[in-house]
Design a protein around this nucleic acid. Sequence first.
DNA 1: GATGAATGAGGGTTCATTCAT
DNA 2: AATGAATGAACCCTCATTCAT
Lengths: 216, 216, 216, 216
Amino acid sequence: MYKITGLEDIHQVPAKVRQMYMAVLQLFEQGEEAGSIRVSAITEMAGIGKGTAYEYFDSKEEMVACALVYQMQCIFDWLGNMLEEKGSFREQLDFILDEMEVQEERRCCFLRCVHIMTDYSEFSRMIQEKITREEFKPYLPTNVFGRMLRRGVERGELRNDLPLDYLVYCLFSHLVSYLLAVTTKDCFEVNPAKLRPLIYRGILNEIGADSQRQGE
Amino acid sequence: MYKITGLEDIHQVPAKVRQMYMAVLQLFEQGEEAGSIRVSAITEMAGIGKGTAYEYFDSKEEMVACALVYQMQCIFDWLGNMLEEKGSFREQLDFILDEMEVQEERRCCFLRCVHIMTDYSEFSRMIQEKITREEFKPYLPTNVFGRMLRRGVERGELRNDLPLDYLVYCLFSHLVSYLLAVTTKDCFEVNPAKLRPLIYRGILNEIGADSQRQGE
Amino acid sequence: MYKITGLEDIHQVPAKVRQMYMAVLQLFEQGEEAGSIRVSAITEMAGIGKGTAYEYFDSKEEMVACALVYQMQCIFDWLGNMLEEKGSFREQLDFILDEMEVQEERRCCFLRCVHIMTDYSEFSRMIQEKITREEFKPYLPTNVFGRMLRRGVERGELRNDLPLDYLVYCLFSHLVSYLLAVTTKDCFEVNPAKLRPLIYRGILNEIGADSQRQGE
Amino acid sequence: MYKITGLEDIHQVPAKVRQMYMAVLQLFEQGEEAGSIRVSAITEMAGIGKGTAYEYFDSKEEMVACALVYQMQCIFDWLGNMLEEKGSFREQLDFILDEMEVQEERRCCFLRCVHIMTDYSEFSRMIQEKITREEFKPYLPTNVFGRMLRRGVERGELRNDLPLDYLVYCLFSHLVSYLLAVTTKDCFEVNPAKLRPLIYRGILNEIGADSQRQGE
DNA sequence: GATGAATGAGGGTTCATTCAT
DNA sequence: AATGAATGAACCCTCATTCAT
């Protein structure tokens, strides 16, 4: 039988596979490590037989990797749609920061992206291999944020003299900083509320349309 | 016998324990995950008997966690000493960015700090518990960078109207951004050389003495 | 899966579990100690995989303890049935003494009862915990002998003015004495044949109907 | 160096060996099984180095076996001396029953004798091998009780028409019954106080001088 | 297609014994 | 003689994977 690749259309995932994905994600939220999740835990939680899992996937690693890729797809798909609805760059930025601050599950997903990018392990390589495939392209942060930033430029809110890649990097790194600040509240005693204005200023300083005009 | 805690003075670690640490770190560089390192791999590489490992540590997890904590201590100790020798904030900043860019082992260590901070797993909690102990205080990035920044303020290079914690956060988040940019060259096509001036400007905009004067 | 408790109906023990029980008992007869029986020895002898053993039992100790409890159940069940068929107290007594003298496996089981009763170890406690459960009640020597003695009283062969508990104790202790005598032939040079009449006289002296009449 | 055999004169056991014996016996009273006592537990409790233990003994089994043999020697030596002081058979019997009922450590020792006699394991064979050596002879229950019984015959308290071995067996088995009754109070609800007269009558019925006269 | 009982390789840990000091 | 750090064989137990039903 054809096995699952994790890059299927998120709306056409077989029911039992979706149940498995949900189980994996739930186990992650319970603090399990990727490597130490047990197949029996997944199938029991998904309410399916252990053998069934192997009808869809070749190995445990595939199950976990596909579940994470699926979650990324879902969240970035959702995020892309939500950003599309906002009227201005500032509203979009606010929305992202709000999500990072508030939502447990979503912050988790952002964190996991950073976590996976900062790891050389076999398992991370597996996910990286998947998310660099053609099918994943539209869900890549690069593209989700890219679309948002391109519209910002078109609207005249952002500088039009910088390569899009640089705009993406700039936004991304500020977001990571905020994410870490929110996550490690205990470590740096920095109030997220006080940080927001600095994030705005930092980003607009670098890529806002005003900074371009000032430079002229 | 007293078991190793990982917080011993880095110059007084027993020879065999140091050999174990080196083995663990080498295995990490070969791409192993924390959870999948085998005790036999550690002891064989360290050239000691498997039982000996358990004379010093209570479990495999302890072995790995202590090795990582040891590496952090060593690197932040070394970094602190190196920074002390530099004459200006700019020289210090250059030194750190150079290290992040060039040195494999050291970048690894920085990355691992981020990696651990972005993880809820049992294993990460184990390390976090160790590095929040009193003995580790002087090696904490917060303190290493804190000392560097305090001197910057004293020298009149940095603003004196901001809490130190905030200065640390600001520096730290810019460093993480640079680190990610250097690490994920493949993802964002951003040239580190072109990034440097932006990092400098970004940091000095926020915490440089000049920005304070301008605000007045 | 539900784990085995050792108190299942002896006729409904799963085949592989029964094979394990047989292996354990065989190992005992080969002179192994309870604590030093190896799981691999059990499974190899039972002709099953090592993992399978853990499908049914939680630990090695459980395997061994359940096997011993199973043997007790089987033997006391068999003994109870055999005694039921005998027509008189004297025939019943003869039957028990014959069995103690002749049968290797069954004497073993009686001896083990004594062995376990004279031991405080964790392992003995484990068995004692099992055989004091409700399900084991009908197989307890107290009850097997109790039924036999009650019928003796009803038939008018035994005194009816003593509590049943006392009758049981009296029979039991004489049996133990005989058992030890038979077992330690090398130690006391006492001929079992010469002992029998003394056992009969000893028991009937204490609990026989005649002794009651004489006392009146 | 000459190794300890466990049959040395109990008053000439080297100090460190005696400390080891005490440690082993203490561990037994804490409920450890013979096979699961650890060498390190013995040496730590004895306050000596682990290597030292192997100066005196060839193996762990020897250490434990010798400690048990030593305890038997001590207790039966003491018992023999105590019995010597008593003026009549009845007083001697009372003394033994008292000890069985009251003294924890000594009842333990009697129980252990039964426990070892009812076991075929390697370890029990080791002890049995030791206690059947010439040097242990005077401490054997057979002999301790034998001396007591011989004096009973000489004093005219006991029958003189039975072989000594038989007298010993008779006494021994009644003592075991009493021991079991006292030990398993919870199992048979038999009051030791009510049992005593029965034990006396039982023994004297069989081997008392009166029973001989009656038979004539 | 779905199942879950059976498997056995693999790895963590213990602990008796040795031997250099 | 005394020590205790070092050792590695031994063994329990886990769990990914298979396959007969």
